[in-house]
Amino acid sequence: MAIARRLATALMLLWLISGAAVAKPPVTLITFNAPPLVEVLSGKPQGGYALTVVRRIFDLADVDFQLRVYPEKRSILMAYEQPRVCTFPIDRSQERETNLHWIGPVSISRHGLYSRPDSHLSLRTLEDAKPLSISTHLGGVIGESLQGAGYRVTQTRTPELGLRMLMANRVDLWASDVRAASEVAGTAGVLLSEPALVFFTTLRSMGCSLALDPKTLDNLEKAYRQLRDSGELEELLNTHGL
C-alpha cells in the first residue's frame, strides 16, 4: 500500500513538473478605451462589443490571458517589442502589416471629419480638407495616413483632447471613429453635428507579437475562423451596424 502511495505521489510530482515545464504563461492582452468597441471604467475594461468578440476568441482557443489597459500607441509598441502580447482593437494597415500577426477584423470602423456645431463648413471629398487643420488621436492609422498624404494633422493623446482642440477653435476639423465620436462628445458634454464627411474605413483587429509561439497563434486563428464561419461574428458586428 505504501509503495502504491509513493508511486502515486511520484507520478503526481512528475505530472506537475512536466505540466509546469510545458504550461505557457498567459498572453498579455492589452486594450484601451474605445467605446463602444471597448469601454474602460476606472482603469478596467467593462464592456464593448470588440471586447466580447476577443473574449470569445480566447475562450474558444482555450488560451489564458491577462487583460491590461494602456494608451493605444503604447499598446501597439508593446506588441511590437514584447514576445507574448496581443492588443486590440487596432487599425490594420499596409504600413503595420509586417510588424504583427493579425487576427480579425473584430470591428469595421468608419472614420469621419467633424466640424464645430456652429460651422458651415462643407466637404464633398477628402481633398477639400487639404487646406484645413485636423486633430485626431495618437495610435490610429488615420493620423499617420493623413499626415503622409500632406494634410495638416495634430495628434492628441486621447480622442477627448482632439475634440477639445476642435471646440477651442484650435483646429478646423476633428477626425474620429464615427461610433466613438458621439460617445466621446456625450462624455465631454458637447453636442456634435453629423460628420462633414465620413472619409475612410478601417478593419480593427487584434495584433499579436511576431514572437508569439506558433501553437498559441494557430489556436487563436482557428478560434476566430470558428467564430466567423458559425455566423456569430457577423451577427455581433451587424448588431452594431457599419
Binding site: 494597415s93 477584423p105 475612410f200 461574428l233 458586428l237
Partner: peptide
C-alpha cells in the same frame, strides 16, 4: 454621393477578403 476611398493595395486586399469571409457589406 460617392465616397471613393484611397488606400494601400494590401489594405484593399485585406478589405475585400474580409467582405468575402464575413459577408458584411464593407
Amino acid at each position: 454621393r460617392v465616397v471613393h476611398e484611397i488606400t494601400g493595395e494590401d489594405d484593399l486586399v485585406k478589405k475585400i477578403q474580409a467582405q468575402m469571409d464575413t459577408g458584411l457589406n464593407i
